[in-house]
Every structure is written in C-alpha cells, then in structure tokens.
Design a protein around this nucleic acid. Structure first.
Lengths: 238, 238
DNA sequence: GGCCGCTCTTTTGCATACCGTATCCATTCA
DNA sequence: TGAATGGATACGGTATGCAAAAGAGCGGCC
C-alpha cells in the first residue's frame, strides 16, 4: 500500500468556478455597474450552460455584490449613502476583528504573511504600480483575516470589504492616497506584531475613516459627469 | 404624487416562496439539524421541480443557515463555539444598530410597533405562552430593525439573529429565562423612547450577554457530552 | 404629427432529461 | 464465514426545452 497517495485533485463544480470568476471580475471592476448580466451571454462567454451561471448569479446577489435590476442582475452603482453604510458596517467589524487577531497571536512567524504583504505594498508603492499595490493590499487583508478566530466574523469582513473593492482602482490611483494607505497598513502591522489589540483596532478605525474619505472624493469626481442611465437602487434582498 | 404608493403585490417567484418557506421552517426549528435536505424530496413535498428548490437551498447556504454535508445540505448543529461566534458578531452589530435607531427617531409614534410587540411579549409571558412569547420577541426585533437607517446593517443583524433563532424554543422554555428576557426588552424600549442611544446600546449588549448565557446552559443540557473548550473567553472583552 | 396599442423578440423562470458518482447490497471467492 | 467485488440505485450537477413576461419596435388611430 502506497501511503503517500493523495486524494485526486477534483475539478471544482462549474457553479463554483463561475461564481469565483464573476466575483473576481466584479471586485476588480472589470464588470461595470449598470451593465446587465445576462445568463445566456455569460454562459456563452464562459462556455457553460445557463444553469451554473444562474446559480452563481443568485449567490452573488445573496452576497449583495449584485442587485436585481428589472429582469437581470447588475453590479450596483454605489451612491454616497451606500458607501457610508458599508463603511459604517466595516467600522463596526474590522477594528474588533483585528483586535481579536492581536489578542490571540503571540508567535511572530504567523505574522509573516502579513509582513510579506506589507513589504509588497511598500515595493509597489515605490514602483508606482497601482495594480500591484491593490493586489498587495488585498493580500494584506487576507493575511490578517486568516488569523481571525471567529470565522463568521472573518467572512462578514471579507464580504463587505469586497463591496467597495472595485472602487479602489479609482481611489488608489493617486500617489498621495497610496501613501496614506501604506502608512495605515504599517501602523496596523506594527500594532499587530506588538500584540496591542487596542492600537490595532484604533489603527484600523482610522484607516477605514481615511479610506471612506478617499471614496467620497472619488465618487464626487466620477459622478461629476455621470451616465444618466440608471438609478442605483440599494442592493437588497429580493 | 402619492409617495406612499408601492409597487403592486406581484405573485412571488417559486424560488422565493421555497426560500421563505424553508427559511421559516429552519428558524422555527421545524427542520432538525443533521437532517439531510434532499432536492427531490423537498421538491415533491412542495409540489415544485428541483430547480427552485436547488436555488433556495443555495441561497440558504449562502446565508449560513445551511451548510454542505457531503452531497446535500443540512441545518448546522451549533457547537458552543459556534454560538459564541454568533453572539460575538451580534454584540458588535446590534448595540450599535440600536444606537442608530435611538439617535434618529424623535417622533414617538414610530415607536408604536416596538411598544406593541413589547406589550404582546408581556401578555404572552403572563399567560405562560412560550410560542406567543417567541413570536412577540421576533416582532420586537423586526420593529426596531425597520428603523435602522443603514439597510445593510439591518440585514446583517437579521441574518445572524436568525442563525440562533431556532434555539430559542429551548431557552425560552423556562419561565425564569422569559422573565429575564422581558426585562431586557423593557429596558431597551425605555432607552429607545427616551432617545438615549448609549443606554439602548448598553441594554442590548447586556441582553445579548444574558441570551448567550441561556444558550450555553441550553446547549449544555441538550448535548450529552459538552466538550471542554479552551477558547471560552469570558463574556465580552469589549 | 403625436400617442396609444399591438405584436414580436428577447430573456428569464421552471421543468425535465441525462450523466457522473457515491452508496448500499448481494453474490462470490478465499 | 468473512471480506471483497460487482452491480443496482439514488442523488446531485449540468444541459436543454418550453412557456411566460418584459421590453422594443412598428403600425394604426386620433
């Protein structure tokens, strides 16, 4: 008996693949708000039938990443009120989540992924690489999120962070903003490695406040010459 | 323009009906944890095809009200750690949500549904009617939740409250527990009508702590072998 | 010339058929 | 007699077919 055999790599279900693909594209801003997501069209694009597409769309709508618009789903174009609501939620969750992380981890080597991501952010900032900075930023979040002892809390944080993620391509376009963000990450990381929960929570709180402010500015800019196409209704349960 | 006009009541899609039906039955504890929910069986029971059943199951799993077990879905049987996690989340959200309600409503007549539900709770408690008490309790929550200015926050609160709702039929079985709960509701309502956000948040925080404690006892009773947890952090660290 | 209504197309909602796979049971061989 | 193997069965995943509803375009009527 060869005990080194591992269970065979099973291909993910099509529904899951479609879900992840769409989710990534929404978060990255590759799918624009207001654009109707039609089942047949997506199915053709992805080379699957309507069924898994349909299931993925339903799940995304349940996550709040899509909202019903007439017959189909669209990425909600966030109003200022929406952004405020999301940041209010994040302000309730993320500082406390980070406090839990700081409180429980003493081993410095578990912080390695966080510091790696921070270093990547720093490098991307220095290189002026916007997309790399965003990517490193996301990694930073994933890294500390993986240490949150409460999985439901972690999931909630991830969910609402994703709701505004596609807007970061706008806000992080500015070197100044990136500088501020990097400073925030540094402060958070410092508090974490010091095991100082209060400082970590406070740092995250400030970080979120700054990010929200950047969004307000960004939305004000992008809505200066907006498309008069559709009214954005709040993403809600169907 | 009569702004109170609402879109006409449209016959709900089958998927939605199935979703709501299943959700209600899960919250009420009519579907027991561990019991596999099979598509064909549910479809036959509800008189629909597998498709809407499947969609409803997917959405419920996305809400966290179901979890994958092998090939099908089951209602998760909550461990003590799960209950703690859920109450940690609720403790982050509900006090602050309630604070927002207290801060924004000045008109006493918007509090009417809340006081109605409170009165119904009181009556049910006096009558010793367990199910009526639970129902009034849920109405109380719906009432103040409807006043939360942040719809996403309201939805999150509702979601996680539902996660443990089916356990209330156990905890609220005790007159003593019902008495404590009723006291908590009174205190919350008092703070709300007084417009005192701090008091409302604090009252809700205490209410949740008490409710969590009741669950711990209930789970300890219902589980033959309560496993020793090392992560049991004392109440709230906040 | 503009507005209303009708029809036709597009797209979703639901049902069902098919396929792959996991599980259970019976049979067979050691 | 026990275990292993083969088959039967049941279930979930996916594709597709069909019907109904929403939207667009066109023609008729005022």
């Amino acid at each position: 008996m060869v005990s080194s055999l591992k269970p065979v790599e099973r291909p993910l279900a099509l529904s899951d693949q479609v879900y992840q693909t769409l989710r990534a594209n929404i978060s990255d801003g590759k799918i624009l708000p207001g654009q109707a997501l039609q089942e047949v069209q997506l199915a053709a694009l992805l080379g699957v039938s309507r069924t898994p597409v349909r299931e993925a769309l339903t799940r995304l709508a349940g996550d709040g990443l899509l909202c019903a618009d007439g017959r189909s789903f669209v990425v909600p174009s966030l109003t200022l009120a929406d952004v405020d609501d999301i940041y209010e939620l994040r302000s309730l969750l993320e500082p406390e989540a980070l406090r839990r992380v700081a409180a429980q981890t003493t081993d410095p080597k578990v912080h390695a992924p966080i510091l790696d991501a921070l270093e990547a952010s720093r490098a991307a900032h220095e290189a002026g690489d916007n997309v790399a900075f965003m990517e490193a930023n996301a990694r930073f979040r994933s890294a500390w999120l993986a240490l949150v002892p409460n999985p439901r809390l972690a999931r909630a944080v991830e969910l609402y962070a994703n709701h505004v993620h596609h807007l970061r391509s706008v806000t992080l376009d500015s070197t100044k903003v990136r500088n501020v963000v990097l400073g925030g990450l540094k402060r958070i990381a410092r508090a974490l490695v010091a095991g100082n929960g209060d400082a970590a929570a406070l740092a995250m709180q400030d970080h979120l406040t700054e990010a929200r402010q950047a969004f307000v500015v960004a939305i004000g800019l992008s809505r200066a010459a907006p498309k008069p196409k559709k009214k954005a209704l709040p993403a809600q349960v169907r």
